[in-house]
Amino acid sequence: ASVAVIAAGTQGNIFATSALRSMRFLQILRMVRMDRRGGTWKLLGSVVYAHSKELITAWYIGFLVLIFASFLVYLAEKDANSDFSSYADSLWWGTITLTTIGYGDKTPHTWLGRVLAAGFALLGISFFALPAGILGSGFALKVQEQHRQKHFEKRRMPAANLIQAAWRLYSTDMSRAYLTATWYYYDSILPSFRELALLFEHVQRARNGGLRPLEVRRAPVPDGAPSRYPPVATCHRPGSTSFCPGESSRMGIKDRIRMGSSQRRTGPSKQHLAPPTMPTSPSSEQVGEATSPTKVQKSWSFNDRTRFRASLRLKPRTSAEDAPSEEVAEEKSYQCELTVDDIMPAVKTVIRSIRILKFLVAKRKFKETLRPYDVKDVIEQYSAGHLDMLGRIKSLQTRVDQIVGRGPGDRKAREKGDKGPSDAEVVDEISMMGRVVKVEKQVQSIEHKLDLLLGFYSRCLRSGTSASLGAVQVPLFDPDITSDYHSPVDHEDISVSAQTLSISRSVSTNMD
C-alpha cells in the first residue's frame, strides 16, 4: 500500500485504499475450498504439459491467421470504412471474430473485405477451437489413466503375492535341489530340531500304542527276528556328554522351557516337584528354603522380579524323601529317536503342500481383483469380450473355409453374387472337401465294379455249361463312374476274359 501511495501521489490514498479493500473479495475463495484444490491444478498442469506441443502448434497457427486476416482486412477497409482507421481496430475485429465472440461493433463494408473476412474466419476458427478439443481429450485420457492406475494399485499386491507364491512353489520342487534360497528361508522360521524330535516322538508313541520308545526297546525280541524299528541315535539331556547330531552343545531358554513342560507332561506320578524357592531380598537368592510367592517384596526391581519368575519355571527341586529312583531318572531322560535326515523329507513334503495351498489362494485372490467394480468397468469388459468373440468367430470361419475348400476369392465371389465353382473344380482343390469328394467317387466306382462281377458270377453259375458261358453278354464299365481312378482293366474288353475262362473250363471238362 505504501508503494502504491508513493507512486500515485497524494491523490492515490483513496485509490490504494479501495484497491486493498477490493482484495477482500479473495476471501470468498476460501468458501469454495480453492486453497485446498491442489490436486485439480496439478491435474491441469499435467494435461497442459503432456499436450504442450499440440497446444503450441495450434496457438501458433491461429496467431498467424489472426495477424494476416487483420492486416488484409485493414488494407481493404481503411479507405471505405471509418471503423478500420488503424491496424489496432482491425486487430480487435480479428480477435473478436476468430474467437467466435462477434460483438458486431465493427464489420467490413466492401465486398473484398467481406470475402477476406469469411475466408479467414473459416480457416482461423478451426485453429482457435483446437486447444479446447486438445485439453478436453487430454483430461479424458488423464482421468482414464488415473482410473486404471487405481485399479492397478488394487491389483499390484495380489499380483506380487501370486508371483511370489508361484516362485516358491517352483523352487520347493524336490527335483530342483539346486534352488536353496527358499529352503534357507524356511530353515530360519521353522522350530528347532528338538521340537521336531518331540513332535515325531509323540507320533511314534501313538503308533506304538502308547508305549515310549524306551519301553519298546525293553520289550523282549526273539533271536533272529528283525527289529520293528531301525537303530537310531540316542540323545540324552544337555547335561550328559552325548547330543543329537546337528545340535549345539548350548541350550537356549526356549529349549529349557519346552524341556520343563515336556517333563511335566510325562505324568505327576513319576515326577514330584517341590515348592519353588524364593529369594528373600533382591540381592541374594536362598535356594535351600522354600517360601511362598506372596511374600515377594514390593520394592524389588523389574529385573529381580523377572529373575524370580524364571526361577519359578526353570529351577524345580525335589524333596529328599520323594527323590526318584535311578530307573525313573533313566525313563525321564530325553530320548531322541530320530535324526535330521529322517525328519527333513517329511518336513519338505509338508512345506510343499503348504506352498501349493498358498499358490491356489493367491491365484483366487488375484482373480477376484479382475472383477469389474462399476458400470464403466462392466461396459469396458463387455466390449473387450465382444471384440475377442468376433476375433474367435473370424478365426473359426477361416478354418471352416479351409476345411470346406472355400477360399478368400470364392468368398468374395459369393458376396458379389457370382456363380460358384463347379464340382470338377471342387474335386481338384487341395482341401478337405476335395479329398472327401475324391474318396467318395472312388468308393462308388469300386462298388459298381463289384456289383458287375457278382452279377457275372451268378449268371455263370446258373448257366452251368461252357457254351452258355461264352454266350453271356458282359456289360462294359461306364468310364464316368470311375472318377479319376483309372484301372488298367477298364480299357480292355471283358469278353476276352470271358473267352479265356470258357476255354479253360472246356479243357478241364475234356480232361475229366
Rank of each mutant, 00 (worst) to 15 (best):
K298M: 07
H386P: 13
P488L: 13
A219G: 07
L501I: 04
V232L: 10
D493E: 12
E330V: 01
L396R: 01
R371Q: 08
G409V: 14
S227Y: 10
P372S: 02
R207C: 09
P230R: 14
T180I: 11
M174K: 09
S248R: 15
K412M: 03
L214R: 10
R264L: 05
L314F: 15
D493N: 10
R505H: 09
S175I: 08
P324S: 06
M511V: 12
S353A: 13
T277P: 06
I379V: 08
E289D: 14
E440D: 05
G405A: 03
H448D: 14
P408H: 13
L453Q: 10
R307P: 14
P220A: 05
L461V: 11
S353Y: 12
G252D: 04
C336W: 07
R264Q: 04
P275R: 10
I393N: 02
R228S: 12
R305S: 15
R307H: 07
C244F: 03
A471P: 04
Q381P: 13
G455R: 04
K295T: 14
A233S: 09
S487I: 12
S281Y: 15
P279L: 14
Y229C: 13
L390M: 01
M432I: 15
P220Q: 08
L198R: 01
S497Y: 06
S175T: 08
D428N: 15
V232G: 11
V350G: 11
A197D: 10
S487T: 04
T291P: 08
D342N: 14
R265L: 02
C235G: 03
L196P: 06
R228C: 08
P213H: 13
D484H: 07
L452R: 12
D490N: 14
V350A: 11
D410G: 10
M278L: 10
T398N: 08
R414G: 02
D187N: 12
S175N: 08
Y178D: 12
L169V: 06
R305H: 05
R176Q: 06
N208I: 09
V203A: 11
D322V: 15
N510I: 05
S284G: 15
A181V: 00
V296A: 15
P293R: 07
M432K: 05
D478A: 08
S395N: 08
Y185N: 10
D341A: 15
F193L: 13
I253F: 07
F308L: 15
F193C: 07
A329P: 05
L476P: 13
I430T: 10
V203M: 06
T482A: 07
N510H: 15
R176P: 14
